[in-house]
């Protein structure tokens, strides 16, 4: 229905609306790769700066405890010092056994971080490999890996750990190694799932098909194009899981099925201090605070990384 109304013909002054060449390349800044872009965003985030500094400090404490305390953690424990308050050279007081709390907290860092880092490395190796293969090849490879993953996934971590640690081998060889084994055994399916999902998302991208039609082999495309583009969620999960695994170790130690008492660990110390919670809560609170701050650092780092690596936040 076209009406007969008079419609005026308006033309904007050309000097006010100059015509630019179509589709000119206008970039003035330095080239910006995905990682450079993420780093630029990260270094302005307080959450990232705080957590990165914290983690650096924790690593120093873990590797060079001697820099922070001269007192050995388990020698020189005098029952006469049992639950004594702070004194010169012993800023946090003493445990029920008469050991220096400050020294124990410092020396406990190493076990927690070792378990966390080593577990994450193994979970990454197993989970990313299996997840990437399942996601990329699909078909029966996917079905087999997914089903095996489901079986381990259906075993909640603490429950599964309870069973595994009942086995004579684990009971008799309690060590950092057995705890890592338990965590890796029950922790890899989560990583495999995330990797699989990320790989499937990238697998059908046009640039993967383009690489295939250039003559790049299947494994070549997987390694050179698919996995690098699926890394973001994997990195985020790995960082978060570092925190989660440290909590898991502490929980297992707390339940008496984690690290042996001979290894200095926050979980063991919290467990030992629970009996005197009502009279001397500080004995429990110091290792608990150290544990919480460590976990918080990794969780915060993961959160900051998630924001920075989010592909949705990338300009197009």
């Amino acid at each position: 229905m076209k009406s007969n109304r008079q419609i005026e013909h308006y033309v904007a002054p050309i000097e006010e609306t100059p015509l630019l060449a179509t589709d000119t390349l206008k970039v003035d800044a330095a080239p910006l790769s995905l990682w450079a872009d993420a780093w630029r965003k990260l270094r302005r985030r307080p959450l990232f700066i705080i957590s990165a500094l914290m983690i650096f400090l924790l690593l120093v404490v873990a590797f060079f405890p001697g820099l922070f305390t001269q007192t050995a953690p388990d020698d020189n424990c005098q029952l006469g010092d049992s639950l004594a308050g702070p004194s010169a050279g012993h800023p946090l007081g003493f445990t029920f056994q008469g050991c220096d709390i400050y020294s124990r907290v410092i020396h406990g860092t190493q076990a927690s971080l070792t378990v966390g880092v080593v577990s994450v490395i193994f979970v990454l190796i197993i989970g990313v490999t299996l997840g990437a293969l399942a996601g990329f090849f699909g078909g029966w490879v996917d079905t087999v890996i997914a089903r095996i993953g489901d079986i381990f996934f259906a075993l909640p971590l603490v429950l599964g750990a309870l069973v595994v640690t009942q086995l004579p081998f684990f009971r008799e060889n309690k060590s950092v190694f057995t705890v890592v084994m338990v965590i890796v055994m029950l922790g890899w399916p989560q990583m495999a799932r995330i990797t699989r999902g990320a790989v499937i998302e990238v697998r059908n991208a046009d640039f993967v098909t383009a690489a295939r039609s250039l003559g790049v082999s299947k494994i070549g495309t997987l390694v050179r194009h698919v996995v690098p583009n699926a890394l973001a969620p994997i990195i985020v999960l790995a960082t978060m899981e570092l925190g989660v695994f440290i909590v898991t170790e502490a929980t297992l130690s707390f339940l008496g099925i984690g690290l042996p008492g001979s290894i200095m660990s926050w979980g063991n110390d919290i467990s030992a201090a629970k009996d005197t919670l009502r009279t001397n809560p500080e004995v429990l609170m110091f290792p608990a605070t150290a544990l919480s701050i460590t976990v918080l650092s990794f969780i915060m780092l993961g959160d900051a990384l998630r924001d920075a690596l989010d592909p949705k936040s990338r300009k197009r």
Binding site: T251, F254, I270, K274, L277, R278, A288, S292, V295, I299
Partner: peptide, 22 residues
């Protein structure tokens, strides 16, 4: 929420038991 996630359940349990309960 990050702090809540970071504090392990058994630590949280003892803290609440002590503060709220005792």
């Amino acid at each position: 929420s990050l702090v809540v996630i970071a504090v392990p359940t058994f630590v949280l349990g003892f803290v609440l038991q002590l503060v709220v309960g005792v």
